[in-house]
């Protein structure tokens, strides 16, 4: 198992929920039942997707990690292995889900 990288989100409460396991970019990660995908990804790391375009000195591929957390900015879309694309902040993480932060197509 890969060691857990630094997460962006920090859990402050509601930590007694049932743990679930999902795969993020091929690596098994732990989250809690009731987490959104955004939370599940961000307690385990800092990048949710890569921007398609550059600008601001950044090249295309710059990391993004959502912004509004309420389904408005659309900066948290991720792919699931079954081909679906979902908005991470408005989709609940489920046990066994396989998530890809890079756009597979």
């Amino acid at each position: 198992m890969t060691s857990k990288p630094r997460g962006q989100f920090v859990r402050l409460a509601e930590t007694g929920r049932r743990p679930i396991t999902l795969t993020i970019d091929g690596v098994a990660r732990t989250a809690l039942a009731g987490d959104t995908l955004l939370t599940a990804i961000l307690v385990n790391g800092r990048c949710v997707r890569r921007s398609e375009f550059g600008g601001d000195g950044a090249v295309a591929g710059a990391p993004r990690a959502g912004f509004c957390v309420m389904g408005a900015c659309q900066d948290c879309w991720v792919s699931l292995d079954d081909g679906r694309r979902v908005r991470a902040c408005t989709t609940f993480a489920e046990n066994g889900m396989k998530v890809r932060t890079a756009h597979g197509g």
């Binding site: 962006q8 989100f9 939370t39 307690v43 990690a65 912004f67 957390v69 900066d75 902040c89």
Partner: peptide, 27 residues
């Protein structure tokens, strides 16, 4: 400049993370 970096969220977003998920957006 830098507003798209991971770790930057809206105020509302920061509040949703806390109310809805029990999380802070950072340390």
């Amino acid at each position: 400049p830098g507003w798209t970096l991971p770790g930057v969220f809206t105020l509302g977003g920061a509040q949703v993370a806390l109310k809805y998920q029990g999380c802070a957006i950072g340390q």
